[in-house]
Design a protein around this nucleic acid. Structure first.
Length: 884
RNA sequence: GGAUGAUUAGCUCAGUUGGUUAGAGCGUCACAUUGACAUUGUGAAGGUCACUGGUUCGAAUCCAGUAUCAUCCACCA
């Protein structure tokens, strides 16, 4: 503390919580209140972002922190611009992720699984966990300074969002876009649920590739890494044009494989088979391979035999001796049998890719099941055109209705859509939106299976409820997430919010969920609303540690946002996450970076401290440029304002923050504040600083607001809703050029001291040439900043001038330590200049260059040539004098 | 196997539609600084822009190929 009463360092912890409370209480996070309070015009252009809802599986990590920082910057900027700005918060129930997390805890702590508790009791546990997790997420979000409109908070599983989900489902069901189909899906044995193709994580694994024949008589050898599935083979496919096997197409062979009943294998021709690969023949297992299932659909005459069950064990259909075995045991047994019967032709070690379930961490089985799907390739009419969900997703981006940042992800997006299959949306888990489909109860048939079913699909349950049974499955969590941009705004009701804020302005999220989420939102919005969900997709990268590794618990390199905030403040974290990060590229976050940001926040704080000290009462006069320095700083401020505004308009947050930092530190603090100590133009100083506070506010809301409050004690207005600086007409190229020259001179004079080790108490003598009015007029600055005495040219001795290569200055001759050293330096400089000159001359004498280069390039070269020649002449004369 | 991206100073990265001695921050070194600043200021050193060709008057930038790394996708039995 000192006489200003302002601490020497910015203590974030003393400010942040109180400031956030103050913002929240002001109500200005809510655009409606902004309009009521006339902070925003009623007819202002809307600007909206819907927060990607964090999963209620735990707490926020640094990726979330980056997301919050980026979005809050955009939101605060637009709010200050006067836009009708809405940032809508929410959380995601994250079905599988949350359920498996809770079940894992349950098993660890109580040794029970979900079936031991039963659906209802288990769901209560999940909800309690979700609530707790939700609360901690909200707490962390507020700690980041996120200016979200909490009055509109949503949850993917709350009443309104559930209604949206059921409405969406029913609409798509009625249109035939959602259908129930029997096909091969990815089944997680550990999780006892399906997972979608996108949720599979492929990992490499070593395996043995067996090449074998079903029997001695069987004409074609086939290869497999999973022999046990071969018990379910019903066909062998070859390419129809393959002359080796053509003759067998259409024949059926029986093969005794040591199971109860022999396999019936039909040879089929299918162009999907690559005759050059392996043996050129594929054993077709329709029940346990997606491709084989597709072949099965193309060839109705072959059978489907399911030999692996949902429990991951062999079914009765595999035959006695196999039924009940695990797949691994069955494999061993079958291979042993093949060996004894001498049917194996080759065994090779190969590396294969297997799909594992992301959530349950086990290798998935391909099983045929009856599940719910969304038909992405089904044609339907829309505005008189035949379209599919795929084409709707493609067109939104192809027609530039949606821009993806960075652009390269558009290619990835299209590539993904091209390979997209129907989306399996039903999950056999409990936590989530239960499918709004009911089946009419029927007397059980002999085998306990339904034969024909009466199906009801509705937003509400059927009236005679007791006669119906709801489908026990729940929906893929991405189904409800896909509705997020409009379910949060009140859809299916046609609310004012929906009309005002949809499509939203920007969707900001990590590139890792481009497919999971971004594409699905486009699908849902296009289908259900007939419009895009957002205009711009801003993809941020992954936050990694300083060595570029992913942050993970096992590596112990996690930076907890809350810890960082406690140690260094939210603003420091926000800056560290934004500076130097570009869309789509991963961001390395290190202590060093956070500390550098923290230092900058502190620097800004101390600038305010200087101002409070030097200008105790705020000037009332309008800023008026009295000197060159004033003209310069106002000119630069004007350029900065335009640059930052334009950069933020184009979502270039990093560049905007860098421009701000460079100006604030290198120009305002290092130069203008020093100038102010001499020239004392309070009005300009305060004006520039106030403008800077507003420009900085989106990036570091807490510190700027804290400074603002300190400056304006007793006032109730908030920097948060101050007006964004407008374009200023103070740009002045001449002042920029002159001040740069002045800076160069001062720097050079200071350098002279260092080079010649001149005692600070001995004044450097600087005598401007008779024509440099600029330097004479700014003599006080030069004297103070360079500790030089400005004298007239006459007083400078001839000897002294010798050693100054760049300008007329005088230093005491005895200070020169090594004249030879200086000569060598000058010679080197001259040589380099000569080389440069030769390069330019070469170009200018080359007719190809002069005839083709544009005029301004030629002019640039001529000017450079003139200046270099002048410099060489000067250097030559100094060297000559130095020798004498 | 396919796709996308990256490769620039010791480290982390900028480098806009090709335009002429390649930039910043951190780090290093030198000097100064304790009167807004857990400092800060001024300056210096440091780069054959991964490699090889090509296009061009001119290439870090465009094209082709090579290498290394990363990520995503994929039903190769």
């Amino acid at each position: 503390m000192n006489e200003t009463g302002i601490p020497k360092t910015y203590a974030a912890e003393d400010w942040e919580d109180a400031l956030y409370r103050k913002w929240e209480e002001s109500g200005f996070f809510n655009p409606d209140i902004c309009i009521k309070a006339k902070v925003t015009a009623a007819d202002a252009a809307p600007y909206s972002i819907v927060l990607p809802p964090p999963n209620v599986t735990g707490s926020l990590h640094s990726g979330h922190a980056a997301m919050l920082a980026i979005q809050d910057i955009l939101i605060r900027y637009h709010r200050m611009r006067g836009d009708r700005t809405l940032w809508l918060p929410g959380t995601d129930h994250a079905a599988i992720a949350t359920q498996s997390r809770v079940e894992k805890n349950l098993i660890e702590q109580e040794g029970k699984n979900r079936y031991d508790l039963g659906r209802e009791a288990f769901l209560q546990r999940v909800e309690a966990f979700a609530q707790q997790s939700h609360d901690s997420i909200i707490h962390q979000t507020k700690k980041m300074g996120a200016s979200l409109d909490w009055s509109r908070e949503a949850y993917t599983l709350d009443e309104k969002r559930s209604l949206a989900v059921r409405t969406a489902f029913k609409t798509m069901f009625d249109d035939g876009i959602i259908y129930r189909g029997y096909r091969v899906v990815n089944w997680s044995v550990a999780g006892q649920s399906t997972c979608s193709d996108d949720e599979l994580v492929h990992i490499e694994r070593e395996a043995i590739l067996y090449t074998f024949r079903y029997s001695k008589e069987f004409p074609i050898p086939i290869a497999t890494t999973r022999p046990e599935t071969k018990l379910g083979d019903t066909a062998v496919a070859v390419h129809p044009d393959d002359t080796r096997y053509q003759q067998y197409i259409g024949q059926t062979f029986t093969a005794d494989v040591g199971a109860e009943k022999p396999l019936e294998i039909k040879i089929i021709g299918d162009p999907a088979v690559d005759p050059k690969f392996g043996t050129g023949a594929v054993g077709v297992t329709p029940a346990h391979s997606q491709t084989d299932f597709e072949m099965y659909e193309r060839h109705p005459d072959i059978a489907l035999v399911q030999v692996i069950g949902q429990d991951g064990k062999m079914t009765a259909a595999a035959g006695t001796g196999y039924a009940g075995l695990t797949t691994l045991d069955a494999r061993e047994q079958f291979v042993a049998w093949l060996r004894t019967n001498d049917l194996i032709e080759k065994e090779e070690d190969v590396v294969q890719n297997v799909g594992t379930s992301d959530r349950f961490n086990d290798v998935t089985e391909a099983l045929p099941m009856r599940q719910w799907f969304i038909a992405v390739s089904k044609e339907f009419e829309r505005d008189g055109k035949t379209v599919t969900l795929k084409s709707l997703m493609q067109d939104a981006v192809r027609d530039k209705k949606i821009a993806i940042l960075p652009e390269r992800f558009e290619k990835t997006y299209f590539h993904w859509i091209d390979n997209l299959r129907d989306w399996c949306i039903s999950r056999q888990i409990w936590y989530g939106h239960q499918i709004p489909v009911w089946y009419k109860k029927q007397p059980a048939t002999d085998n306990g299976q339904r034969t024909t079913e009466e199906i009801y699909c509705g937003v509400e349950p059927p009236k005679d409820r007791e006669d119906w049974e709801q489908d026990p499955d729940t929906l893929d969590t991405w189904f409800s997430s896909g509705l997020w941009t409009f379910s949060t705004l009140g859809w299916p009701e046609q609310t004012e919010d929906l009309k005002t804020y949809h499509p939203t302005s920007v969707l900001e999220t990590g590139y890792d969920i481009l497919f999971f989420w971004v594409a699905r939102m486009i699908l849902m919005s296009e289908y259900l609303l007939g419009e895009i969900p957002f205009k711009t997709v801003y993809l941020h990268g992954l936050v990694r540690d300083e060595q570029g590794r992913k942050m993970s618990k096992s590596l112990g390199n996690i930076l907890d946002p809350l810890d960082v905030i406690n140690d260094h403040g939210a603003d420091a974290l926000r800056l560290a996450l934004v500076i130097g990060s570009t869309p789509g590229n991963d961001l390395k976050l290190s202590d060093e970076k956070i500390i550098a940001s923290r230092n900058f926040v502190n620097k800004l704080w101390n600038m305010s401290r200087y101002i409070a000290l030097a200008v105790p009462t705020a000037p009332t006069a309008a800023p008026e440029a009295k000197t060159l320095s004033d003209r310069w700083i106002l000119s630069r401020l004007s350029e900065l304002t335009d640059a930052v505004t334009s950069l933020l308009d184009h979502n270039h947050l990093s560049l905007a923050s860098e421009a701000l930092r460079d100006f604030t530190w290198n120009e305002f603090a290092d130069w203008y504040i020093e100038v102010h100590k001499i020239e004392k133009n309070d009005a300009v100083l305060v004006f520039v600083f106030n403008t800077l506070l507003r420009l900085w506010h989106p990036f570091m809301p807490f510190a700027t607001e804290a400074i603002f409050q300190t400056f304006n004690p007793g006032r109730n207005d908030l920097l948060m809703v101050a007006k964004w600086p407008e374009h200023m007409k103070t740009r002045d190229e001449e002042a920029n050029a002159q001040f740069t020259a002045l800076q160069g001179l001062i720097a050079a004079l200071r350098n002279l001291r260092a080079v010649y080790r001149i005692d600070m108490k001995v004044p450097l003598q600087y005598s401007p040439s008779s024509d440099s009015a600029l330097f004479r007029e700014n003599a006080p600055l030069i004297e103070r900043l360079a500790r030089a005495t400005v004298t007239t040219a006459q007083t400078v001795s001839a000897q002294a001038r010798i050693i100054n290569p760049l300008f007329d200055a005088s230093v005491p001759l005895e200070s020169i330590i090594d004249i030879e050293k200086e000569r060598a330096r000058l010679l080197a400089e001259k040589a380099s200049a000569e080389k440069y000159k030769a390069g330019i001359e070469g170009r200018l004498n080359d007719e190809r260059f002069t005839s083709k280069a544009p005029a301004h390039i030629l002019e640039q070269n001529r000017t450079a040539l003139r200046e270099t020649e002048k410099k060489i002449a000067e250097l030559a004369s100094y060297i000559e004098n130095l020798a004498a």
